[in-house]
Nucleic acid binder design. Structure first.
Lengths: 92, 92
DNA sequence: GGTTTATATTATTATATAAATATATTAATT
DNA sequence: AATTAATATATTTATATAATAATATAAACC
C-alpha cells in the first residue's frame, strides 16, 4: 500500500463539512436557487450565505449563472449528492 | 425547508477530510491494522500516525483493541467506506 | 529488574477558518 | 441619474488545526 495523494478529496470533504454549507447544498440539490431563496428559507444572514457560496464556488463545487438581478446557483460536483446520501446511513 | 442541524455530519466530514487520515482509513478499510503496520506501509512518522488515530478514535470513527504489545485499529463508522467510495466518482 | 518494541502524549509554533459587521458592486426600475 | 433589490467583498477578531520534535507509558522478553 502506497501513500496516496488525497489532497483534493480531503479538500472537498473539508469544504462541504460545515453545517451551513451542508444546509445550502441540501437546498441546491433539490433545485437551483439564488442567494435570496437560500437566505429566505434557511434564515441565515445574506452576507453569510454569499460568503459560503463563494467558498463553494471557488472550490468548483457549485456554479453561478447571472439571470438579471439574480444569480442562480447549482451544484456541479456530482460526488456531493452521494456523500450527503451516505451521511444519512446509520453509524453502526 | 428548515435549517437542519448538520453539526455531527459536518464534524465527520471534517475529521476524515485530511490526506493522512484518508490514507489511514483506506488501509483500515482493507483490513484492521496496528500503528506499526500503518506507519510501515504508508511511511508516515509513528507519532503522526498515533496522533491521527487518536483523533479518529475520539470521534468514534475507529476503535482500538489492545492485543499484547500491539493495538489493533478498525473502522466502526460504516458511513466512512461509503463516503470514500463516493469520492472516487467523476466530478462531472 | 532492565531493555526493547509498540504506542501515546505534550509542547511549540505556524497557519487556516469562523462569524459578524460594514460597505461595495451590479443591474433593473422609475 | 437616482433609487432599490440582489449579491459580493473587506475587515476584524476569535478560535481551531497542523506539523514536528521530544518525551512518556505499557507490555513482553531476557
Amino acid at each position: 500500500m502506497e501513500l496516496k495523494d488525497f489532497a483534493k478529496e480531503a479538500d472537498l470533504l473539508r469544504t462541504i463539512g460545515h453545517p451551513i454549507r451542508l444546509n445550502i447544498l441540501t437546498v441546491l440539490l433539490e433545485e437551483d436557487a439564488c442567494v435570496k431563496n437560500i437566505w429566505g428559507c434557511l434564515d441565515i444572514p445574506q452576507a453569510t450565505v454569499s460568503q459560503h457560496l463563494a467558498i463553494l464556488k471557488n472550490k468548483g463545487i457549485v456554479m453561478a449563472q447571472r439571470e438579471g438581478v439574480m444569480v442562480r446557483y447549482s451544484v456541479t460536483d456530482h460526488r456531493v449528492g452521494k456523500i450527503i446520501e451516505a451521511l444519512k446511513g446509520k453509524v453502526q
